[in-house]
Amino acid sequence: MFSIISPSEPRFDNDVEGERRHGSKQKDAMDFDLDDSENVTSPGQFITSSATFMRGHGTYVDQEEVLASVAGTIERVNKLVSVRALKSRYTGEIGDLVIGRITEVAAKRWKVDVFGRNEGVLMLSSVNLPGGVQRRKLESDELQMRTFFEEGDLLVAEVHQFFNDGAISLHTRSLRYGKLRNGQLVTVSPMLIRRLKSHFVALHCGVDLIIGMNGFIWVSKHAKEFEGQSEEGFEAQAVYSNKNDDIDNATRTAISRVTNIIRILSRHSIPLTDSIIAQAYDWAMEQDSNEVKEMLTDDYGELMVQALLAFR
């Protein structure tokens, strides 16, 4: 143990040194001819000629020139040039897992806030109704929509398709989707979320994560797997319940710790993956002071980020 920690001490110093050097370099880097900034755009900047390239998101064409319209980085796929903004609202893609909050109950549909440019829509026909998947939607279901989802409820869903005006349609037709309980929500910029093999993550500290592609992350008590429960044995009581289970203090602490880790990483603009969160949790547990509330101080955050970057 000691042998690992002792060489890592000078490493931190090195890193700080690097940062400092970096700061001084930044002042020179304001020139646009430098290779470093070649990839970085800002509105109105010339990218290429429209005769040879196609324009993608974040660009527009003016007088046969492709120009950037947002501040971000250039991405090129064959002949398609697009600019990925550093910070923007969530733009959905079919199949994305998102977390949203019900804002309105309308006729045969719910309006869901998914941090997009429009509100998402969850149709009554795209949720699992009690009594099995094959059951037909009845008028009585329309009348008691609030027993399934109410205004303010949080839910996890998948992007199903788009409407003509670009609004997102969601569905929760899986036992893994549905109302969220037993945890807390933390929001980060959608740009920090990478696509993962699975967005349902079980950390070994007894905490489950659901990482929505829209930057909403649900941190909750570990839930038992649904194994053994067939689609037929689906219980409306369990899925649409508004009651939290009992959560012991240790789990509550773990949930808050994971939440704070996510906040720290997001403050330092570090892309979130399941592995980096697990690493950060282990690092946090090794520290002398385990107070969760102390984690949000700047010093603690700096230390954690440096340690995580040194791991890589």
Partner: peptide, 8 residues
């Protein structure tokens, strides 16, 4: 610009 809204 900070909000990532496209401007010409």
């Amino acid at each position: 610009i900070d909000a990532g809204i496209p401007l010409t």
